[in-house]
Design a protein around this nucleic acid. Structure first.
Lengths: 259, 259
DNA sequence: CGCATGTTTGATTACTGTCAATCATGGTGG
DNA sequence: CCACCATGATTGACAGTAATCAAACATGCG
């Protein structure tokens, strides 16, 4: 497994034991969980949340470790507490593609859960991660007890569907350079850190090879596109770190040149 | 605009047929509606369905007519009773793309409805169509009364999300010729008619130009791809009619050449 | 008939994928 | 500690695909 240049310190949300890697975790609770306080769960009242909480299983994963595999039965949901995961799909011919990267606070695999009971894609960790698993039974119970939860997932799913459509559109209409710029902007929102000098540093949680899959292009093509952006002083590259000096320049990249 | 061979008749409840002299149609009712008997509505009991039924508005649309417009408020759902519609999205730069074609029996705009209250895409008729509109209030009421309805939509939405992902993947990994073949196979399932001699005739409900948008390519490129397929005796073309003599040949096109 | 729209074709260019070689890096085992 | 290896990143040359531009053609409609 490759060693990622990331400190094993995650400070957001509930504290995660960094000093004692052997101790799984301090008592985490969905009730107080900030990272998982997404719209879905927020509709539950305290009692319901308590039930979900007591049923959930929290686990740490190493970078590269699989959380679930395409084709395997889908027996609940996953919530990412810390870290970033990748969703990857392989088709019948063996072609594989990363569909998306999903970050802390997001619920994972819910589409597979509600669509059928089999995973259509695999999830694995890009960084070390802490992931909660909410088993089928507890989820069923919560949904029956709180119809609003189902509606919250519906709303979430509908939004994801819209953005999938939008993505497909952008993919079809823009060249790789633009798609790369768009990807960088997305990760800026997830992992961006402001510098002293007003710039932004984005640490990509993946190899450029994986980034290439994400934008639907070859690694070589992405490499060239990235260096072209650097050449034009839009960004600066250092390993998997991307420095954005002038955000406007990057934004110009995605605002089509047209008229 | 184009010709209006069908009167644009608005109708409350089940009376659409009475006002449409050219089409003798029995009173329409969601209760007995076969075309709209999709999984979503089938979970409602007779009483609930009756309520939805009495609130719904059925309307005929001419080819080319818009059912709803991107950016406008989304005040309910649409069910396609007959005909085929196109969903089209336009981005900030004015680029437009057909996201998908949707056929009779399908529910329309539900993602926009549940995601927010604004349409993110437009819907217009590729063929003359009959579309039921279920207003916001009735829908709200039905969902509150029957939580299963919400879950049915969730399941539907999740499946659509999966197929959107799959689509994005195929789009990224296959050339235009393959994507065209895939589109033809999709429309074969929707509009295919078996010939006497064992072949299949597919009448595309759209121009090749629109078909090109659907596969994410230019009209010229699609034209060439289509004629290449004809050249290789995979299909035969006559206007917007496509003859598939040997389905296996077309299926071979989508089964990647690999290994 | 003439116009508008859609289709086809050709010539050309731009972009992207493919193949191959090299370089850089970190991890491993000795 | 260092040589070695595996992986990822980069670069060049090239081929193949698709977009673009332009023109001709077909068709349907007013």
């Amino acid at each position: 497994m490759t060693e990622l240049p990331y400190p094993a310190v995650y400070s957001e949300g509930t504290l995660v034991a960094k000093l004692s890697p052997r101790v799984p975790r301090p008592p985490l609770s969905c009730v107080g969980c900030k990272t998982c306080a997404t719209v879905e769960w927020s509709v539950l009242d305290r009692a319901q949340l308590q039930i979900v909480n007591s049923a959930k299983i929290t686990r740490r994963y190493a970078a590269g470790e699989a959380v679930y595999d395409q084709g395997s039965p889908c027996l609940g949901l996953h919530c990412i507490e810390t870290g970033t995961l990748a969703i990857r799909q392989t088709d019948a011919e063996g072609n594989s593609k990363m569909l998306r990267a999903v970050a802390a606070g997001q619920t994972l695999g819910y589409a597979d859960y509600f669509a059928g009971k089999t995973y259509r894609a695999s999830a694995y960790c890009l960084t070390p991660a802490t992931v909660c698993h909410i088993p089928d039974e507890a989820l069923q119970q919560a949904i029956v007890a709180s119809p609003a939860l189902g509606l919250a997932f519906l709303s979430h799913c509908a939004e994801d569907l819209q953005s999938a459509d939008l993505m497909g559109m952008q993919q079809a209409l823009s060249p790789v350079r633009t798609r790369v710029a768009r990807m960088l902007l997305r990760f800026k929102d997830l992992h961006g850190v402001s510098d002293d000098d007003g710039g932004i540093t984005v640490s990509l949680p993946m190899t450029w090879q994986e980034a290439a899959e994400l934008v639907g292009a070859r690694a070589e093509t992405v490499s060239r596109a990235v260096h072209a952006l650097e050449q034009d002083d839009v960004i600066r590259i250092q390993g998997r770190k991307v420095f954005i000096q002038d955000l406007d320049l990057l934004l110009d990249e995605v605002e089509q040149t047209g008229v």
